[in-house]
Design a binder for these strands. Structure first.
Length: 307
DNA sequence: AACCTTCCCTGATGGC
DNA sequence: TGCCATCAGGGAAGGT
């Protein structure tokens, strides 16, 4: 479940490894992740160099000489660099004492759908067991990306992500706040893990209706989203299942999570057992005490025995 | 338009 | 040990 921090971690590592690398050949196995026909990749990509690698929400964009190669990792997508001259490894190994891990590379397997071969002999592998990802190709027009990402919401860490713009996107919304955070047309890049973490950081119950939130609560949420995404990037992403970076390394943010995956365990802030419910078909974790259903005012009245 | 549900897909996990 | 049911979820598609 790569979300913004995981995709950003991959982007940074990958850019360092493949900037200016020239694509010489490629192998694409027919698969539903290809929104562009693999044959078209075959006839357009060879000869082009990777000039830049950018991110929009959870999308990665490789800027080639004449095209944009757009990649979304879905649930289980992995992008890794492999040098056929070096030994492959299997599984994930972390040092039992130091926690350190060496960069590792993995050989293609039946879930590897795309292999880009670079001039220097290295490969870029796209692997995706559940095939929820997507690979697309755009001509490199000046406004191609704006058009392609036209429905995407605010980009965190960009100039457009202001409190005012955030409030405006939430205006007149009556849905529950958790599904709203997952809606990529509101804020781009937040997924299930960081939505739960942001709601905890902002002390907001996931089932609260957006239009019932106080303004200061919305502002707290605006800041909390940035805060949890920033921390996710700082720790190299959250590796709960399939996520690895471009060098095959796991992140460590899973150890920093306050509520996600911690159902039954004590809340770090108050000791109450973290609860897990289902909201919009998504597992949702929260602290019943730190994130009261009725907001802070109701909680205070209840604690005082007035309700 | 907003909101909600269903579906896609496969590996891991747990019960029997 | 094997078998089957269940769960994980990003986003497209469909219904209201």
């Amino acid at each position: 479940m790569p979300e913004l921090p995981e995709v950003e971690t991959i982007r940074r590592g990958l850019l360092e490894q493949i900037r200016d690398a020239r694509i010489d050949d490629l192998e694409a196995r027919a698969c539903r992740v290809f929104k562009v026909a693999p044959e078209r990749l075959l006839e357009t990509l060879p000869g082009q160099r990777v000039r830049d690698l950018t991110r929009r929400g959870k999308f990665l964009v490789a800027h080639l000489d004449r095209h944009f190669l757009v990649v979304h990792l879905g649930m289980t997508g992995q992008l890794t660099v492999r040098d056929p001259a070096r030994p492959d490894s299997q599984g994930f190994i972390r040092h039992p004492v130091t926690g350190l891990q060496r960069a590792r590379q993995h050989a293609p397997d039946p879930h590897t759908h795309l292999i880009l071969g670079f001039q220097d002999g290295r490969h870029l592998l796209y692997r995706d067991s559940r095939k929820f990802g997507r690979i697309d190709l755009l001509s490199r027009d000046p406004d191609a990306l704006d058009r392609y990402f036209g429905n995407l919401g605010l980009e965190p860490f960009s100039e457009q992500y202001t409190p005012e713009a955030f409030l405006k996107r939430l205006r007149d919304r009556r849905t529950r706040v958790k599904p709203l955070l997952l809606d990529q047309s509101v804020v781009a890049g937040v997924g299930n893990i960081y939505a739960d973490e942001a709601l905890f950081a902002a002390s907001i119950h996931p089932l609260r209706r957006v239009h019932r939130l106080r303004k200061w609560e919305k502002l707290a949420l605006h800041a909390a989203v940035l805060e949890v995404l920033r921390q996710g990037i700082d720790f190299g992403g959250s590796s709960l299942r399939d996520y690895i970076d471009s060098e095959g390394r796991r992140g460590s943010n899973q150890e920093e999570l306050k509520v996600y995956g911690r159902q039954g365990l004590p809340c770090a802030a108050c000791g109450t057992a973290v609860a897990k419910i289902v909201v919009g078909q998504r597992g949702t974790h929260f602290c019943p005490r730190c994130q009261p259903r009725g907001g802070r005012a109701r909680r205070r009245r209840r604690d005082a025995g007035l309700v």
